[in-house]
Design a protein around this nucleic acid. Structure first.
Lengths: 221, 221
DNA sequence: GATCAAACGGAGCAACCGCTCCGCTTGTGT
DNA sequence: ACACAAGCGGAGCGGTTGCTCCGTTTGATC
């Protein structure tokens, strides 16, 4: 038997023309359906929408999870790439941060599955998660070096904030309501608010009534 | 046939002793399981944990949804009642707002099903949702009359914020990370940030690249 | 055009889950 | 102690969903 596969396994074996067409139809349909209804949709729906039988779908993607991963990775990459470019193109650090959030949330607003996929940080896209952290980290540093962002905000804080806002974006149907929330959050991030944030603490799991009562700080208008 | 039921149907017919015991065991187990795993759990798991058969469970609660509603309503009420009392007992408006959020989120942090149930505002507890809105509205008014809360924040904004934060609370395992996020949000709500929030707009559905570019406002430290 | 591996489609399998049915058990009133 | 309605348990039904099996079709190659 001749060695059909070249020793480099990363190049997918050349597909027949119809197979290639079907594969892309599946990805396109899955992208739409996952975005509309989240990762929980029936696989039959995707097969139907892409005009393909179940057998075909499952030869291209041995598992529903594989299909979801493929689609989500594409969209994750296009999203994070746009974010990287925007943040690199904008000189003003604070504006870069603002545009990053607006753009991210506008993107996530239209994709339920992407929001779900971003929720677990240890998700199936470690390199994408890495890039997201890097972008946010660089934005944070730029803003803090310019003295615009309160100094004790961490990258983790920003990641958690973006996840929290992306849920709000799903809950609020239209565009406007979460824009207001974003404005409020960004104002809260501004170094105008000089007071220190509460500590992370060493995983104080069992503290419901926490020791130091969080020092309620009435604002000074 | 004698009329067994008194004409007042609101008093549930007297249950046999074991039936009463079972009913409460079911509610207790369901509360735990729903809180741990959300509303999606298998009913068999609840039956198992309460030491009861399926038939028993379904005689007491003709539907899984009924059970969920019963449990959630109890917890919703105990939560909102605590919030009402706290907010009435605290004189300082800003501290009342702060404590309201801290208490709410601490409560929601330990109950997945409650977070899910709060997500749909048109949920099965209109009177509870009403009370929640009333508490938030009164807190908002108190803070705004005292000049502590930026004047164009609406009650809807606060509701959306609390839903958004409660999702963050689920994502962040331990207590500390979302406390920081709450602090940031509260700072953003402070009237120290005088700039107007973006309009709600008449459901501008198709505006991705919005007309007025949102006026990026660099903070003034 | 002939050949055949590659690709296709969709009926159907297995597991899961909400809910029901019905024969058995038990608390309660006499 | 007895009778019996009220209550109980869990096997199983029907619907859904992820995935497979296999007979049929089709694009590439000569």
């Amino acid at each position: 038997m001749p060695a059909v596969d070249p020793p480099t396994p990363h190049a997918r074996r050349r597909l027949r023309a119809d197979a290639e067409r079907n594969r892309e139809a599946i990805i396109r349909a899955a992208g739409t359906v996952f975005a509309e209804q989240g990762g929980g949709v029936d696989v039959r729906e995707i097969a139907r929408r892409s005009g393909v039988g179940m057998g075909t779908l499952y030869r291209h993607f041995p598992t529903k999870g594989d299909l979801l991963t493929t689609v989500l990775e594409q969209e994750f990459i296009s999203w994070i790439t746009a974010a990287e470019e925007a943040s690199a193109a904008i000189a003003d650090p604070w504006q870069a941060l603002t545009v990053f959030f607006e753009q991210s949330l506008a993107h996530l607003a239209r994709n339920r599955a992407l929001v779900e996929g971003c929720a677990d940080v240890t998700g199936p896209f470690p390199q994408c998660a890495r890039r997201r952290i890097d972008v946010m980290n660089s934005l944070r540093l730029r803003c803090q070096e310019a003295g615009l962002l309160r100094p004790d905000v961490t990258t983790d804080d920003l990641v958690l904030l973006s996840m929290s806002l992306s849920q709000a974006v799903q809950a609020a149907g239209s565009t406007a309501p979460w824009r207001r929330l974003l404005q409020i959050s960004l104002d809260g991030l501004s170094s105008r608010n000089g007071d220190p944030l509460p500590d992370y603490g060493p995983a104080a799991e069992t503290s419901d009534a926490q020791g130091p009562p969080g020092r309620v700080r009435p604002p000074v208008p």
